[in-house]
Design a protein around this nucleic acid. Sequence first.
DNA 1: TTAACTTATCGTTTTTTTACGATAATTCAA
DNA 2: TTGAATTATCGTAAAAAAACGATAAGTTAA
Lengths: 111, 111
Amino acid sequence: MASAKTTEFSESEQQLATFAKALAHPARIAILKILAAQNECICGKIVEVLPLAQSTVSQHLKELKTAGLIKGTIDGPKSCYCINWDAFEAVNKEFGFLFSSLQKEKGKACC
Amino acid sequence: MASAKTTEFSESEQQLATFAKALAHPARIAILKILAAQNECICGKIVEVLPLAQSTVSQHLKELKTAGLIKGTIDGPKSCYCINWDAFEAVNKEFGFLFSSLQKEKGKACC
DNA sequence: TTAACTTATCGTTTTTTTACGATAATTCAA
DNA sequence: TTGAATTATCGTAAAAAAACGATAAGTTAA
């Protein structure tokens, strides 16, 4: 009967999947690019540029914020969003770590 | 009325999102780790290790294959899956490119 | 050939994601 | 204070993802 399925997914696997999910929509990648390119974190501008309704953009922003990739502050009637560089650096490193750890075994490939 | 929402998402944004989606589930990350760690690409072993039904694992494998991250060959009654290192290297570079291009603007952050 | 084994696919259900319009809440300008 | 502007949230609908059991299709060993 072989071994039991006792292995739940590890913390790091879950966290990586969470970050990947945050990046798993072109609108959210576009938002990150916009936030990075503009020195002002104008939120309304994003709605103008993206082919999505304001409420949908707001939802994507919320997901990015929940994932920790961006942070937002209230600026008068407007909202100011920015990339959370600390978290972003962490994600970058985690992905890099995954990639490099996978590649260590590269030589053994059989197909 | 500002500018029209003519900007669809770019090719690179869509492709990145597709790859991210492939990584957006802990089971698929776990599968990649298993494939990388074993010098044999035994498929059935994955089912034993993961807390998922065989059909579900098969589905995840198919998604990874569709995304191009792995490739599979038939080995008798069994199936042999391996990481597609070429594609993987491409993904790695694309992510790295995204991260570094975003970070170029880092100094301008406003919040 | 038959039986056992391995894996993909099918059908289905449940959950999550994506999207929108409408509305509420907040702030600034008149 | 009123009105315009901005954004978040609510309610909802449609689409996609995730999961499972059952089944089919293939291969090897007896």
